[in-house]
Design a protein around this nucleic acid. Structure first.
Lengths: 200, 200
DNA sequence: ATAAATATCCTAATTAATAGGGATTGCAAA
DNA sequence: TTTGCAATCCCTATTAATTAGGATATTTAT
């Protein structure tokens, strides 16, 4: 963790299950995370801590189905902090860096915590998290991830191939992902495309 | 369905649930599949029909957890026929062509049946289903899906770029997936790579 | 033993993508 | 009202990927 932040950093653990909170807290402590750790057993309190928290760990099972946040809404709801989600094992998001399942084994969980809380990115890499793509860029990204060539995308979106190329330039700059494979992973993980949308 | 096979083709539906079997059978009939349809309520009988079946539809819930086949073992267990799996909605394989979930909606199910049973490939395209990639081809596919260029893959695997290109040629022929995006989706869905393996 | 599959390497031609530059328009916020 | 952003379009090089032919040696399976 970056030293200049250590005193102000707070990590909130939101879960109604004591044992889970304890386990999560223990992991953080064993990893040497020196930030202040706060436990919250009532999910509704999350609104109170939005401005204080640098990290939030949320047990999704502790939030009623209809209130449950989804991955897309995270940047909106928690613009100022990084969110780590804990699921029940039925999600197909188990491979995201900021997601663990209660069914994951010890090694997987520790690895993900390590990556998320210890291997912090530098400041100049931070825009990657916060910057979002424009509507049109998302359109183009989806087309790319579905396997269409620049020419095909141009035809499908009724724009010139130059525009497609420009959009792709901006996309790779914003996301810092420069390969088709990487963009495809990004699109899948962010539910921009479904696997069956893939053009063969 | 190819006419020369119609008389010999048999489709087996393996499920302990009558209503499911009936529904599946009805779909096949409505799609105009003329092959003989056999229902099997006891999963253990599958061994008896291995040499007769051209298609097998298996309700995974009807098979005890420990006996349950996984996707990787399908080509071994059913070398001579094509297998269509029916799951309970908790799998993250719902997007595979030969897989439906009971939670899928009508349109999705019909589409997948259409694709699987009606849009039969020609003989020379058949290897797609039965043939699996070789060890080396899987290695190359993983590299491609992680975003490495042919040159990078050549360096990483200590082979010439020509060999990489040849492997990729064979991969795209076998899988009938010719785009990097499509191969990446395939690799993710088949757990050949994890999203965080992706090279940016 | 022989056929099939695998793994390796090659050339040449074509197509696609990327990295640099540009530019214009419209719209919304400062 | 000016400033910035989004979306559109254009260009030249360069690099990468794809396609379509080859070839050879080694395993693997029948």
């Amino acid at each position: 963790m970056k030293s200049e932040y250590q005193n102000s950093w707070k990590v909130y653990i939101i879960s109604e299950h004591f044992l889970l909170r304890l386990g999560l807290k223990t992991i953080l402590e064993e990893l040497g995370v020196k930030a202040e750790i706060q436990e919250i057993s009532e999910w509704r309190e999350w609104t109170k801590i939005l401005n204080e928290a640098a990290f939030v760990i949320i047990d999704m099972e502790s939030i009623p189905e209809k209130e449950r946040l989804n991955f897309d809404s995270l940047p909106d709801k928690f613009p100022k902090c990084k969110v780590f989600l804990l699921g029940n094992g039925t999600e197909n998001k188990v491979l995201l860096k900021n997601f663990i399942s209660v069914k994951d084994n010890q090694q997987e969980i520790l690895d993900k915590f390590q990556r998320f809380f210890i291997e912090q990115p530098d400041e100049d890499e931070m825009p990657k998290e916060s910057s979002v793509l424009s509507e049109r860029e998302i359109e183009v990204l989806k087309e790319v991830s579905m396997g269409y060539s620049n020419k095909e995308i141009a035809d499908r979106l009724f724009i010139s191939i130059n525009t497609v190329i420009t959009h792709r330039k901006n996309i790779t700059e914003k996301l810092e992902i420069k390969t088709i494979a990487g963009l495809t992973v990004y699109a899948l993980m962010n539910k921009l495309i479904r696997p069956e949308d893939s053009q063969k």
